[in-house]
Computed example of a mutant assay.
Amino acid sequence: MSLEQLKAFLAKVKGDSSLQEKLKAAKSPDEVVSIAKGHGHEFSSDKISLLSEEELEGVSGGWKATKADRNDIFCG
């Protein structure tokens, strides 16, 4: 459940529009964790809040999260 796993998953998401759509539809950070696990990446939902803005940038079709969005990065 490492930050490195989360970063690896985000790198995969950047190049996969289908995966981006799945994450946009996620209702909670725990659902994001479940999606990631299904793609071979394991981390806990609390790791999402540890990412910098630069790391979050472009993850979801160019959507850029602000610090206020970190807890809801993949929700709505």
Rank of each mutant, 00 (worst) to 15 (best):
N71V: 05
E55V: 06
L51D: 02
V33P: 07
V33F: 09
G62L: 03
G40C: 11
S45G: 08
I48E: 02
H39R: 06
G61W: 11
K24E: 10
K14T: 04
H39C: 05
L19V: 06
E42L: 12
V32L: 13
S45L: 13
S44E: 13
E21R: 14
K14I: 07
L19A: 06
G15I: 01
S45R: 15
A68E: 13
D69A: 10
A26K: 06
V59Y: 00
L23W: 04
K37D: 06
L50H: 13
A36C: 01
A11H: 03
K22D: 09
K24V: 03
L10T: 04
I35M: 02
G40N: 10
P29K: 13
S44R: 14
G38Q: 06
K12L: 07
W63M: 09
L51Q: 04
Q20H: 04
S34K: 07
K64C: 15
I35W: 05
A65V: 13
G62N: 07
D46F: 11
G61D: 06
K27C: 08
L51V: 00
V32E: 08
A65C: 13
L51P: 00
G61H: 10
A26L: 02
P29C: 15
D69M: 15
K64H: 15
A8W: 00
A11Q: 07
K24Q: 09
G58P: 06
L56P: 00
F43P: 04
A25H: 09
A65G: 12
E53T: 10
V33Y: 05
W63K: 11
K14N: 05
K67G: 11
G62Y: 05
L50P: 01
G58N: 11
V33M: 10
G58D: 02
D69E: 11
E54Q: 07
K7L: 04
V32P: 02
V13G: 00
K24I: 02
G58C: 10
A8T: 12
S49V: 15
